[in-house]
Design a protein around this nucleic acid. Structure first.
Length: 357
DNA sequence: CGGTTTTGACCCGCGC
DNA sequence: GCGCGGGTCAAAACCG
């Protein structure tokens, strides 16, 4: 049983989709500062009462958009009013976002994004959180159901060994959209406010560090996440979320109004904010390692500006009221487009696209 | 005592 | 078909 220390788990985060060749820096990707926390407190008490919010010094009145929201150029409010300055005490945060091409499809479904031909980056930047109502969530629950059925149905095969439940033999098991981010931290299991139960651990090939599998403990919620440490850089923890929470964050920060728990799809932090200005030396070094560096303006407007984005994957956001008027969509689009470009390396985006095909 | 973690076995998809 | 690696199961151990 591993007892994690109580250090800030959110130190240095990078986001990526499915951990590109994240390890080793081959994959590359933009790095930007972030602040993320879906809930305070933590389902796990491993870090005491510290949640992302506290750890990062985020206050409840700071309503940050989800990471994904930040990458919705086509619907970002143009010129957002000054936003509350985000101070995070942890100056060792960075993250990288990668995308999943599926998002494109999803975005199209939602009709939120411009055609890929127009703003290809937009759809790819998003980490393809599928709509909860759509296949993604249902697929997981279906999976479970399928499993149960199979279990009930039983398998005629006589298992010489222990009577394990026959596993489903779905023709093509559909994977939930995944969303991975890298975190520079001593702690493996980051506190995102949701409650997780570890259900497995496997040794990772070519890595001395094992990979842990967690599942959201909330009944009916099939969200899973994998946590593994980079073999190249043991200080980097890669967390991969799969699926979307079908419930609000079990642990709400005191008066965490405006922070939609559901917005943290995949159980990922809700407010992942590019804040390159806060990169510390270490991060800067990492940036150097990365071929693509997030270099947009430090203005937080960028991030919060997207708070009124409605992403199909975030029911919570659907309920959120736009916080800023959107007088000049074109301006916004432009700005955010630039942001996207900064955040997501083109090669990565193209890769994602190709992979999707 | 209930929930979580550990851990070995099993299942499954994929490449050869 | 086989082997490999990733992912999952589930009993036992552990913990508060």
């Amino acid at each position: 049983m591993e007892k994690k220390n109580e250090n800030n788990p959110m130190a240095n985060m990078r986001f990526s989709d499915e951990i590109p060749s994240a390890f080793g820096g081959g994959g590359g990707g933009s790095i930007f500062d972030m602040a993320g926390a879906s809930c305070e407190g933590s389902g796990g008490d491993k870090w005491g009462s510290l949640g992302f919010m506290d750890l990062l010094g985020i206050h409840q009145d700071f309503v940050a958009p989800s990471l994904f929201d930040s990458f919705q150029p086509s619907i970002l409010p143009p010129s957002s009013p000054p936003l509350p300055v985000f101070h995070h005490h942890d100056d060792d945060i960075l993250h990288e976002l990668h995308t999943d091409s599926k998002q494109q499809h999803l975005n199209h479904q939602a009709g939120l994004l411009s055609p890929a031909s127009t703003v290809p980056e937009s759809s790819e930047v998003l980490n393809n959180p599928t709509t909860p109502n759509s296949s993604s969530i249902s697929s997981s629950s279906n999976e479970l159901a399928a499993n149960d059925e199979q279990t009930k149905a039983g398998d005629d095969e006589d298992k010489t060994k222990k009577p394990l439940k026959p596993k489903k033999k779905n023709p093509k098991r559909q994977r939930e959209p995944r969303f991975a981010f890298m975190t520079k931290s001593d702690i493996d299991h980051l506190d995102d406010g949701y409650r997780w139960r570890k259900y497995g651990q496997k040794a990772v090939k070519n890595s001395p560090y094992p990979r842990s599998y967690y599942r959201c403990t909330t009944a009916g919620c099939g969200v899973k996440k994998r946590v593994e440490r980079s073999s190249d850089d043991p200080t980097i923890v890669v967390t991969t979320y799969e699926g979307q929470h079908t419930h609000p964050c079990p642990i709400m920060p005191r008066g965490a109004i405006g922070i939609a728990p559901d917005s943290s799809a995949f159980g990922a932090p809700s407010f992942i904010i590019p804040q390159p200005m806060y990169l510390n030396h270490q991060q800067q070094q990492q940036q150097q390692l990365q071929p693509y560096i997030y270099n947009s303006t430090p203005s937080l407007n960028i991030t919060t500006a997207s708070s009124n984005i409605i992403h199909p994957s975030f029911p919570g956001f659907l309920q959120e009221k736009p916080r800023f008027s959107n007088p000049n969509p074109s301006a916004l689009s432009q700005r955010d487009h630039g942001l996207l470009q900064d955040i997501v390396p083109t090669p990565m985006r193209t890769e994602a696209k190709q992979e999707d095909q």
